[in-house]
């Protein structure tokens, strides 16, 4: 049985991600305490809002340690949008605040001459032999981005004035800058692949 545990990072709207995961065949629970995270069989880090606020919400709940140990233990983790950003080191959005630093890299704002936020559907181009990611169009809404894939990772890039990293696959982590839960049938298929064999057994 596959239960995905959603880690609420502050103000994220959980309705869309819960609905989409259920549609893809997973059971769902929302973490209320640190032990919900350490006992999870799959983790979902959704996220809207700001880098600093999301990190502060995790620290306040003393969830940072639980996340570090659970993700390090190899529990499959899906990180979406801001959830992806906090797995990295820093973001220009909130200078001075450290992310969880599972992956090397820093997020920067799109250049001034580009329409920001980057809102809408854009193409996903897998880079390397990805396990889960496939080519297609996905829905984005964000103002900060990573410009190169961390060394030793595979993933996907997307072009918006210049190429940026739209997803990373690294060990047990699938991190997406786009929103699979809002990316129509293509997004649901990606969630289904992530959930894998455990689907439909809730």
């Amino acid at each position: 049985m596959t239960t995905a545990t959603i880690v609420p990072t502050g103000t994220a709207n959980l309705a869309s991600v819960s609905t989409a995961l259920r549609r893809a065949g997973a059971c769902m629970r929302i973490a209320e305490r640190a032990s919900d995270i350490t006992q999870a069989s799959r983790l979902v880090l959704p996220g809207v809002g700001s880098f600093g606020a999301a990190m502060a919400a995790l620290e306040r709940n003393e969830w940072t340690l639980a996340l570090r140990s659970t993700i390090s233990d190899g529990i499959p983790t899906l990180a979406i949008c801001l959830g992806m950003q906090i797995l990295f080191e820093t973001s220009e959005e909130t200078p001075g605040v450290k992310g969880l630093a599972f992956l090397h890299g820093n997020f920067n704002k799109f250049p001034i001459d580009v329409q920001t936020p980057h809102v809408g559907w854009n193409s996903i181009e897998p880079i390397g032999k990805t396990h889960l990611l496939k080519a297609g169009d996905a829905y984005f809404t964000h103002s900060f981005r990573l410009d190169t894939l961390p060394p030793g990772t595979i993933g996907a890039i997307t072009d918006y004035s210049s190429p940026f990293v739209s997803a990373v696959e690294y060990k047990n982590i699938l991190a997406c800058q786009f929103h699979p839960e809002l990316s129509g049938a293509w997004g649901i298929d990606l969630l289904r692949r992530w959930i894998g064999n455990g689907a439909d057994k809730c």
Binding site: N13, L14, A15, S16, T19, A20, R23, Y139, T141, H179, E181, L182, S183, G184, A185, G187, I188
Partner: peptide, 26 residues
């Protein structure tokens, strides 16, 4: 729905927004 949903009309407060967002508006 598996695509983004924007909801408007008569929103006056943060509480109005909260109610719509938790019901599933993006």
């Amino acid at each position: 729905l598996s695509i983004p949903l924007t909801v408007g009309g008569g929103i006056r407060s943060l509480a109005d927004c909260e109610a719509l967002l938790s019901a599933g508006a993006d």
